[in-house]
Simulated assay, not measured.
Amino acid sequence: MSNSSWQPVPWQGQPGQQPSMLAAHADRERAVDVLRAGFAEGRLPQGEYERRIERAYQARTVGELSMLVADLPQGPMPQQQMMAGVPRTFLPPPAPATNGKAIGALVCGVGTVFSGGASAIPAVILGHMARKEIRERGEGGDGMAVAGLVLGWLAVAFWSLIIVLAVVSSVGR
């Protein structure tokens, strides 16, 4: 297709755009993309493709850009797509609620470091209660309950060992 056989077609642009509207960078890039596709498909010879690209970057209005790509297939126009909801059947099941006592067990277990072991017993009690409720109700949070239990029992063992050593050392004197 030579430049002499190319006939401009009247403006048919996007809704809301007038031929005299100043072209934005996005408009120019869209026109260049259409030209690239036309060249890649063999619809434009090299020389004409290069001239049209140069004119596209120099275009001031949307109408000028329209004239450059009027004889080429322009593909689908950009449209806003409505996001349709996913049917509930295809959604993953909701995550089970986390047991509140499991959270409390973990907080008390971590708190043994800051409370000098005073929260160790509540951590153990809450941990055992949480694990029972989790099994019965199918709730989440078993890992937190176990962590609270482990930290609580470690603190109980540590302070029991300290007390035993203190008693043994005071009896031995």
Rank of each mutant, 00 (worst) to 15 (best):
M83F: 09
R60H: 06
G116V: 01
S66D: 15
Q12N: 10
M67E: 14
T112F: 02
P92D: 01
N3W: 06
M77W: 14
A23S: 11
A56V: 04
P73D: 03
P87E: 12
P96S: 02
G100T: 09
L165H: 09
A95N: 02
G111R: 08
V110F: 04
P94G: 02
E48F: 03
L68N: 09
G138D: 05
L149P: 09
W6N: 10
F114K: 11
A31N: 05
V156A: 10
R43K: 03
R60S: 12
P93F: 00
R28V: 12
Q17D: 15
D71R: 11
A84G: 08
K132S: 09
M67G: 13
A147K: 12
A56L: 02
E41A: 07
L22H: 06
S160C: 09
R131T: 01
P10I: 05
R55K: 10
R137W: 00
S5D: 09
V69C: 10
T98I: 01
G47Q: 15
G109V: 04
G16E: 08
P78L: 07
E41F: 01
C108D: 15
A155I: 09
A97H: 01
M83K: 13
Q74K: 08
V107Y: 14
S160D: 07
Q7S: 07
L154S: 13
I53Y: 02
Q81I: 10
Q17K: 08
P76W: 02
G85H: 12
A26D: 05
L165F: 11
F90V: 12
M77Q: 15
I162E: 03
V86D: 08
